[in-house]
Design a protein around this nucleic acid. Structure first.
Lengths: 675, 675
DNA sequence: GTGTCGGCATTTAGCCGACAA
DNA sequence: TTGTCGGCTAAATGCCGACAC
């Protein structure tokens, strides 16, 4: 991996930059400027290149979406598995904007199957340890004074100050030296950079809101980088070729490289690019083939905060489909449609890729015949929500919504400790003040009110795009304790056989559940026995198509409900009469505001004859007895306690919506069981 | 034609910028900033688009030549005839760099043949009339003072100053207002811009050497533009896609548009682009099909000076061939190889396109048997150099060199009046003080010294690439008077028959001369009679191959001599012994400097056994009597009179070289006649 | 006619602690 | 702990004519 700054120096012109100490030195700085979430793949490893993602970068940089008819490149698949021959880090001479140049070479199928190199499995974070990053205040950028250094930062990163003052020399990405007078003065005393600071500010054209970062590296050198605030848009005017030609250019270049197995060069601009589009092959394989996701699943995703630290946002998978079925069928790029929990989600992409997200459970929240078990009382002496049968996956996942909502109100909002395994945090936390039996009673009541459903019509041209495969991750939502319990108390096979008597579909549901659970050691053997049974295999084959149809259909229904989308009449007619009746209730999508008043959300007003999420009130009205919302009644104290009223108000809105969806899903689950 | 500045304003985002008064207003400014030679084709007309030229713009902007293997686009011809649907003028927000966006649509063959629209024939110059442009001095850009306005410029462009001072308000390309205090003070008095000037300088980041221009338009508005000096290179770092992808992108975009006859968009950046690559169809047709060029022909070409005015540089066509025979066979883009007269030609392209140049004569300077006529005395009573036979084309063209050299010393250097037909300026101007009889005597002496030549060996694989076609331009180098004279005094056919007795080759030379002259009404009939004679036709066919070989060979020899290139021994051996002897004289290429001393030009030192141009002195030594250089002896007064010593020194150098070449060409012409 | 400079007035930059959030 | 401000001094900006090329 080489580093050079985009300049007229001989290093760029001769294609053979001088190698030296500066390489490693500035690699830290580059990564610090690029941000905590940016990681470059390792030279020599295999990567997956997504032309779509590259195109997004162009669109973001030129501020122009593809509008003209882009030619088709039949030889260009939506993702290219490539050998990464070279990565060089660069910084724009004018703006200090960091970017990376990568040389890729598409691999033939044989090379793609080669075993992993050790380097391909490890992905070390390149973020420097001894650094600080401060967003510039008005005082920092004014000509009136210098730069106020946060005390901890100065003590951690700057060499100890010998009074009264010392000179600091810091190098930027291009190797330029900047000198600052460092003094500790004032009443109370504080660290300041005075002489030299304004020269730096004007030279780099820094404004209030931009960030500077200082690194103290292992060689006792001081490095200095900048990270500009997200300006409205850095219009790359190009003035050389049109954005259309750029889009075509990257596609044609990749297509040509793919056709000839020759190298091609791309630029990755981490600050301008919505998502990384060169992904380590190992990461891609793991996300696409070794992680199971499906509609309704909860996930977290990392984002960079304005203070250039990291926080997680949570959301729900609402669909899995091609982003662009015409040009890029069967692409994994942004194949996951998501809904974000917070209403500030407008800034965030409505679609993500599998490798970007971190599923909260490896099991999909999916209708399961075992949801019926909810009618039975919770086994005593065990954590209530985990004490049920392991087959109650759908319910567990569904209830995880509520639990996560509560967690958001209790835990600090900014995620702390990136390295902590997220799976440890999904364990049930009862501290948020809800009594599990309230859930129990409510859901039980809800289900008792359900009527059988006749499935009339199901779309037939649907297929699953993601073949479920084995989950090889040791950590899981379920603790070992709960796992052992479920194994001993509720053997799967019995249950399966019970249900097979009623309906073939249910037995195949069982098989699917077992496949999901086969990573749990003991059950793998049982599964194999079942699979080796010729009769079971035949059944499996015969009914697989029908299952998938049902599954896909309900995926769509549920995701539509959760997103507040309108439901087509043709879909609505496929529901049972009772669901049809419910879905025909027309109303505005309304949320309680912080005063408890229901406010209508613009743009989601009622449409006759379509199914939309119910307001909290309406949801209550669906049931015979008035419904009590445990979270709403118990939340005010929580809100006050945490001083997070605005945030929690948003959470309440989400909760209301989620609650509505949850009830509706239960209705559907119940009907599935009845048919 | 629309105008908008690249900004985040809605005009750019909505693709539908507001139309208004500003359009026309800033169109002037745009053209002033773009430079006097830049003209945009008219919307609605047909144009020719050259992907190669577009690629050159990318290469110049990214500072990277195409290095990787670019895929072939068989469907993309080297030039696309397109309908120009839209032209919008833009200016980079950051740098004020002007560029134009054009929407093109390739035309089908039928549309290409449609008759011209009136708009396609006129090409109005858009340069504003009331403007001035000044290159900034150190004082102008320093913070110590303001801007010193040249007096004439201030009086022409600024509103009359009401003492003691006034405020000027000028708008730039983006519509921003800039206010300056305009004062007339100092001893002696001068116009100055004081308050407000330094703000402008720092905002636009102007440095010494950049230019500012003020326009006073018809609406009594003051416009203000900048033209930056040619920085070492404005590295367009891209950081979004690689330059390779850009190259591929423009090719693929054009190929796709050509294949589907759909629109595509290009950017034209006049300050970064080596040559315009969207040419009005009429201009292209005229240059390619209605103008005759061949090797040895002299031409002029316009260039922009550093003071942003225009001057002509002169050169000689030294070859006509494909710039890139592999990727772009049969392309007219830079198909003309040229040698520039001045030693500063390193900056200028060694290849130009037909529509960029202005041939000094529509006849090629080519060896002709009629050069023998030089031995006869000039016909009395007519302009001496034009009084000879019309067949003396080679000599006429050759002497035109000297005439043009003289003209450059006499005429103002800055070309004035772009719209004036250049052909009117090529008429002989005897005012530069040379006596024609000096030429007469000298050349006669030179030719008397010649000996017969035996042609030994001639390359056989050469062909002419440009079929000569009829010249349909009424103006010509020869005045009607001279033309009539030559027709009456010296009928061609007689001469032709005389020479045919000696050598078949000469008769075919005659035929060729006649073909060149067939546009001269009366002779066309004679020509047809000859061509219809079966015997002549047979001779013509049999000897065509040999003719072409000879022609091509001498083309190469002459162009090599004129360019000062080294001659391969194999070529040298094909010459006659006398020419071999001359060519074996080894010497440094030396030019007289302004003091009359001969200075050696670096990089052109002598090589044994190769033919190089002779110094002025050596040229004299070739002849029995000492030679007198009329231009050098007469030039000092001319130089002082015009205060153009540096420029004229260069011209003198060129003259010396040209003179040498001329004498050598005469030697060769003579030998051709003898063999 | 105009580029550069010395002289001088004015503005700005920039260092300091006070003070409050 | 740190962002902003008033006070103060140093440095620059910037207007002027002188002078020379």
């Amino acid at each position: 991996m080489r580093l050079s700054s985009s300049s007229l120096s001989s290093s760029d012109l001769t294609q053979q930059p001088q190698e030296g100490e500066q390489r490693c030195l500035n690699s830290e700085l580059w990564h610090a400027c690029a941000g905590p979430l940016v990681s470059l793949p390792v030279v020599g490893t295999r990567v997956v290149y997504f032309p779509q993602g590259h195109s997004e970068q162009v669109a973001a940089s030129t501020n122009k979406e593809i509008d003209s008819h882009i030619p088709n490149y039949p030889s260009l698949p939506p993702q290219l598995i490539c050998q990464l021959h070279d990565v060089t880090m660069h910084a724009d001479v004018e703006t200090d904007e960091v970017y990376a140049q990568m040389t890729l070479q598409p691999l033939n199928p044989q090379e793609q199957k080669d075993p992993y190199l050790p380097a391909e499995l490890g992905a070390a974070s390149k973020q420097p340890t001894n650094y600080f990053c401060k967003t510039l205040t008005a005082s920092d950028t004014s000509t009136h004074g210098g730069f106020s250094v946060p005390r901890r930062a100065a003590e951690k990163v700057f060499p100890p100050l010998q009074p009264p003052a010392q000179e600091l020399v810091a190098r930027d990405l291009h190797g330029n030296e900047w000198k600052f007078r460092h003094i500790f003065r004032g009443q109370p005393k504080r660290h300041l950079l005075t002489t030299g600071w304004s020269v730096f500010v004007s030279a780099k054209r820094l404004v209030t809101g931009d960030s500077v970062l200082f690194i103290w590296n292992e060689n006792n050198q001081l490095l200095l980088g900048i990270r500009r605030a997200n300006r409205p848009q850095t219009v790359m005017p190009s003035s050389v070729i049109s954005s259309d030609s750029m889009h075509i250019g990257l596609l044609a270049a990749a297509a040509h490289a793919a056709a000839t197995n020759s190298r091609f060069t791309i630029f990755f601009n981490p600050r301008a690019c919505p998502s990384e589009f060169v992904i380590p092959l190992a990461k891609y394989i793991k996300a696409v083939y070794h992680t199971r996701v499906s509609v309704g699943m909860r996930f977290r995703m990392l984002f960079e905060t304005e203070e250039s630290s990291v926080r997680r946002y949570m959301g729900t998978i609402t669909g899995i489909s091609d982003l662009n079925p015409v040009h890029w069928p069967n692409s994994h790029w942004r194949s996951v449609k998501v809904g974000w929990d917070e209403s500030t989600a407008a800034e965030r992409q409505p679609r993500v890729s599998l490798w970007e997200i971190e599923p909260l459970t490896t099991f999909p929240m999916y209708p399961s015949p075992f949801s019926l078990r909810l009618k039975r009382p919770w086994p005593p002496g065990l954590p209530p929500l985990y004490g049920g049968n392991i087959g109650d996956l759908g319910l567990n996942s569904a209830l995880a919504w509520l639990r996560d909502s509560g967690n958001l109100g209790v835990q600090p909002l900014n995620f702390q400790g990136i390295g902590v395994s997220p799976y440890n945090q999904t364990r049930f936390d009862n501290s948020f003040g809800l009594k599990p039996d309230i859930y129990q009673a409510t859901t039980a009541e809800a289900i008792q009110d359900m009527r059988p459903m006749e499935l009339k019509q199901v779309p037939t041209n649907l297929q699953f795009q993601h073949t479920p495969t084995i989950i090889n991750r040791p950590n899981n939502l379920l603790s070992n304790q709960a796992l052992q319990h479920s194994q001993s108390q509720q053997p799967f096979v019995q249950n399966s056989q019970e249900n097979q008597g009623h309906n073939h579909t249910q037995s195949s549901f069982l098989l699917q559940q077992l496949q999901q659970c086969q990573s749990f050691g003991d059950q793998q053997q049982q599964l194999k026995q079942i699979q080796q049974n010729p009769q079971v295999q035949r059944q499996q084959q015969q009914q697989q198509h029908q299952q998938q149809q049902h599954k896909q259909f309900y995926d769509q229904v549920i995701s539509g409900i959760m997103l507040g989308q309108t439901m087509q009449p043709s879909v609505s007619q496929a529901l049972s009469p009772s669901l049809q009746k419910i879905s025909s209730i027309s109303h505005p999508l309304s949320f309680p505001d912080s005063n408890g008043t229901y406010v209508s959300t613009p743009g989601t007003s009622s449409l006759n004859g379509v199914l939309q999420p119910f307001s909290y009130e309406e949801t209550s009205n669906l049931f015979s007895s008035p419904m009590t919302s445990p979270l709403i009644t118990s939340s005010p104290g929580c809100l006050n306690k945490l001083h997070l009223s605005h945030y929690c108000h948003q959470e309440l809105s989400v909760f209301s919506r989620r609650w509505t969806s949850l009830v509706l899903c239960f209705l559907i689950f119940h009907e599935i069981l009845q048919c």
